[in-house]
Computed example of a mutant assay.
Amino acid sequence: MSALPVSARLAWWGTAWMRGRLGPDEVVDAVHGDDVTHVVASSDGPSSLLLELAAARNHGADGVAAAFPAPGDPAGLRGPRELTAAAIEAGEVVLLPGTGLVPRQVGRAVEWQALPAERRPPPDLGDADRGLRAALLTAANALADLDVARWQPLVADELHDLRAGVPLVAPPGTPTRCVDLAARALHLEAVVALALRDEGGALSARDAAVRRASLEPLERAARHALTAACSPDGWPPPADDTGQR
Rank of each mutant, 00 (worst) to 15 (best):
W12P: 00
E26T: 15
A85P: 01
R120C: 11
T138Y: 01
L115V: 02
P46Q: 08
D241R: 01
G201I: 12
L10Y: 03
A221D: 09
A229G: 05
H160I: 07
A164N: 03
V36D: 14
R57L: 07
P167H: 09
G76C: 05
L215F: 10
P69G: 07
A65D: 14
A142D: 12
T138M: 06
A185C: 02
L194G: 02
A134L: 13
G131Q: 04
S42T: 14
N141C: 12
I88Q: 02
V6R: 15
V27S: 09
R220A: 06
T138I: 05
S214T: 05
R211P: 00
A202G: 07
L226E: 04
T242N: 08
L203V: 07
T227Q: 06
V93A: 10
V210W: 12
V6C: 08
D44T: 11
L162V: 10
G33H: 10
V28T: 13
W17F: 14
W235G: 04
E92C: 06
P217A: 11
H224P: 00
G201N: 10
G60I: 00
A205M: 15
P121R: 03
A142E: 14
R163V: 13
P80G: 07
G91T: 02
E158W: 15
P74L: 03
R21W: 13
P46F: 12
G243Q: 04
A209H: 15
M1V: 01
L143K: 04
V191S: 04
D29H: 12
D129H: 15
R211Y: 08
G79L: 10
A117G: 12
P171R: 09
V102C: 06
T99N: 05
A164Y: 06
D161M: 10
A87L: 05
W235A: 05
V28Q: 08
L146T: 01
A170P: 06
L77C: 06
E158K: 11
L196Y: 06
G20R: 14
P171Y: 14
R150C: 08
R177N: 02
A225H: 02
A11G: 10
A205N: 14
T242K: 07
L186D: 00
L53V: 02
